[in-house]
Design a protein around this nucleic acid. Structure first.
Lengths: 214, 214
DNA sequence: ACCATACCTGAAGGATCCTTCAACCAATGG
DNA sequence: CCATTGGTTGAAGGATCCTTCAGGTATGGT
């Protein structure tokens, strides 16, 4: 009965969902261990055995919840992304409530709120953010975001609709550009802490290297 | 005597450089095959055997030029990035020649030229661009760009210096932001052709999926 | 306290994969 | 034309890695 969700690529759906509290903690430990292994050993050395060892459980346990390694990574990606989406929807709700029947807010302020929402999720868990960057390329994201991106987009549109000094005839490109540039800047900053903070007032540069945008 | 270049991480330096034309073609074929395998089978299925099969050479040949798989990917990344840098330096030369002792150009135009330079390299070889995105996360980029990013930065600074209507007290953050946002937008467009072109006047949307910014 | 279920274990099968090396072919220049 | 150096081959060793499954343990509702 599983593996029917059209938004999840074939063979990547979780095998079962934890029902007892113990197993809930187990899956959580596996997720956390995956991040640690990813940051410590890199994506190429990410192994089901290494993950389960670090999580303090047996390999078989992992395969109880995920049909294969890809499914584990996919689930992590989905979870992380869902958090961003959720944060955006919260912001949209707030903005709608505040600007219920007022004049709205300046577009600059709305854009800053959106950027803040995005950054806040990333900064809250830098390790997870970095881990996601590592696997994002190697994963078959397929139609991961076919629904998730739509939600992100509509939340953004809802926010942008309350601009007091701007209105968009077609928001599509606007939203895409906004999200792409913000995520690009954030990603570059995470991956190049040296170059990212260098020269910025009040930012201390620590690491002496600076890989650049591919 | 090899593996002494401080800008190349330990163990990732090429074993030897082709000297005859035949071997030059071989290495080129290996690079090309790597891209194809990357796009066809994904990063996780990228295998030295698969690459050499597709390149029409033997496995041993690959290991004659690269000490290991990582080194091959690293060399590709370096080569691709070097092309971007080169394109930027060309642009800087051109701008300096044109604005030799004139009033310079509007900052908007200079920024557009820079963006164009970046995009032109990416668009010239979409396959290679996509391949780079796939491996960029999984590769130990280490100090890949410690020198390469400096060149990219200084070329950008040289261009920006000829703005007729702007001057920057510290260009560091400006350059970083410019490059990060442009690369972010380009990457998102490459990875999400649907969402990237949707709603843009004169852009035909083809694919029905749209993974979003991680 | 008891039992149906949920959950966990970890050795082992089977499948790749990375890398080497000894033997063999091709080119270049004197 | 021949010797030297450059280039290629591909089977095989050794190392992981993914995934399963039969057997055992914990949980929580009754």
């Amino acid at each position: 009965m599983k593996d029917t969700d059209p938004t999840v690529p074939h063979g990547l759906a979780p095998r079962k969902t934890p029902v007892q509290t113990r197993s809930g903690a187990t899956v959580e430990a596996i997720f956390e261990a995956t991040i640690q292994v990813l940051l410590a050993d890199g994506a190429t050395r990410l192994t089901t055995t290494r993950v389960t060892e670090r999580a303090g459980v047996s390999v078989g346990t992992l395969y109880q919840y995920f049909p294969n390694k890809q499914a584990l990574l996919f689930a992590m990606l989905e979870r992380h992304f869902d958090e961003v989406v959720h944060r955006f929807e919260e912001l949209a709700d707030t903005v709608e409530r505040v600007c219920a029947d007022g004049p709205g807010q300046p577009i600059v302020q709305l854009a800053e709120s959106l950027a803040d929402a995005y950054v806040s999720v990333k900064v809250a868990r830098p390790d997870r953010t970095m881990a996601m960057y590592q696997v994002a390329g190697a994963i078959d994201r397929g139609n991961l975001a076919i629904g998730l991106y739509e939600r992100l987009k509509s939340a953004t549109v809802r926010v942008l609709a309350h601009a007091s000094d701007a209105s968009f005839s077609n928001v599509g490109p606007v939203v895409f550009t906004l999200l792409s540039t913000v995520s690009g800047l954030v990603r570059a900053t995470f991956e190049n802490p040296a170059a990212g903070s260098e020269g910025w007032p009040g930012c201390a540069t620590r690491r002496p290297w600076s890989p650049a945008p591919i």
